[in-house]
Simulated scan of single mutants.
Amino acid sequence: MVESIGQFGPGLKPPTFHDLRLPLLKKAKDETENLRERHEKAWKKYGCTLTCDGWTNRWGRHLINFLANSSEGTFFLRSFDASDRARDAEILSGLIDAMIVNVGYSNVVQVVTDNGANYKLAGALLEQSLPWLFWTQCAAHCLDLMLEDIGKIPSMKKVINQERSCTTFIYRHGCILHALRERTNGMDLVRIGATRFATAFLTLQSLLKHRAVVRSLFGSEDWNVSKPIDPRSLHPTG
């Protein structure tokens, strides 16, 4: 939005309160309904996958997003606040069944959820009541759980803690971080993943790739002239 405003240049007249709450809102609603009609054609022709994405926001509310994926793409359906019922498999299966009705029983081929015990049981309940339906575990969540278990192996846990100590030390000291980025052409060592387990292994991969650069950094003039380091900064925060 900001980029579009900048491209327009001086003289842009913003929409009024009336425009935003009536004609522009109606236009956006009509466009969304037209978009859904295109997706519905694909659902009827090829079938679709109903994706159930549960997550917890910063206020501790457990939200569940429902999306339909087909050859036309992914379409957001609805979001539920399930803070008081997320652990109840029967209620979860009821929510998912209601969304299947919304999309159309004949249109939904499979349901994809995460691998929590509550979702597993909800998936089993759905397959019993809807014999043609396939419940599938989320592959990304499976991989994340695998990385979590690998990270608990004592030898692996030690390596990850050493990695965090190294990167925490570098990122807490601006002059050292600047010297590192000069040697890596602006690339960072810490690779942010979707979860902290993925982040740990992506960062290990990055350290391996740049190990020669990191070694040269701690033997460089930048390191020799840097200020004395507080030993407390060696302890990782995460």
Rank of each mutant, 00 (worst) to 15 (best):
K157Q: 14
D144A: 11
I160E: 08
I100W: 00
P131N: 09
S106E: 14
N118M: 05
T167K: 05
N118L: 04
G104N: 09
N161M: 10
I96D: 00
H141G: 12
Y105P: 06
G151E: 03
T113E: 07
C175E: 11
S129M: 09
V108M: 07
K157P: 05
Y105G: 04
S106I: 06
A124S: 14
T113G: 07
G151C: 03
S155D: 15
C166S: 14
H173S: 04
K120T: 13
I153N: 08
L95T: 01
W132M: 10
F169D: 03
V109S: 01
I100M: 08
V111R: 03
T136A: 13
G104E: 04
L133R: 06
Q162M: 09
N161H: 10
Y105L: 11
Y119M: 15
R164Y: 04
H141M: 11
S155G: 10
E163H: 02
I170V: 14
G151M: 04
D144N: 15
G123M: 01
L121N: 12
I100D: 05
S165A: 14
W135T: 05
D97T: 04
L133E: 03
I96K: 00
P131Y: 07
M156D: 01
D144M: 03
T136Y: 07
M99I: 11
S155L: 15
R164L: 12
A98M: 02
N161P: 01
P154A: 14
L147V: 03
Y105E: 14
A117I: 10
V103I: 12
L125F: 09
N102P: 00
L126H: 02
D144K: 05
D97C: 08
C166Y: 06
A122G: 00
N115H: 08
N107F: 06
R164N: 07
K158Y: 11
G123F: 03
V111A: 02
V109M: 10
I170W: 08
T136D: 07
N107W: 01
G94F: 01
P131H: 10
F134I: 10
P154L: 13
T136H: 08
R164F: 05
T167M: 09
H173N: 10
T167R: 05
P154Q: 13
C138L: 03
I160T: 03
T168H: 12
G116C: 12
L92M: 15
L133D: 04
N115W: 07
L92C: 10
G104C: 02
D149P: 01
E163D: 04
W135Y: 06
A124R: 13
R164A: 11
E127I: 11
R164E: 11
G94A: 05
L95F: 13
S129Q: 14
K120D: 12
Y171Q: 08
A139G: 09
V109W: 00
A117H: 09
T113C: 12
N102F: 15
H173R: 15
K152P: 06
D97W: 07
P154G: 12
I160L: 15
V111G: 03
S155V: 15
W135P: 00
L133F: 05
R172K: 15
H173V: 05
Q162F: 02
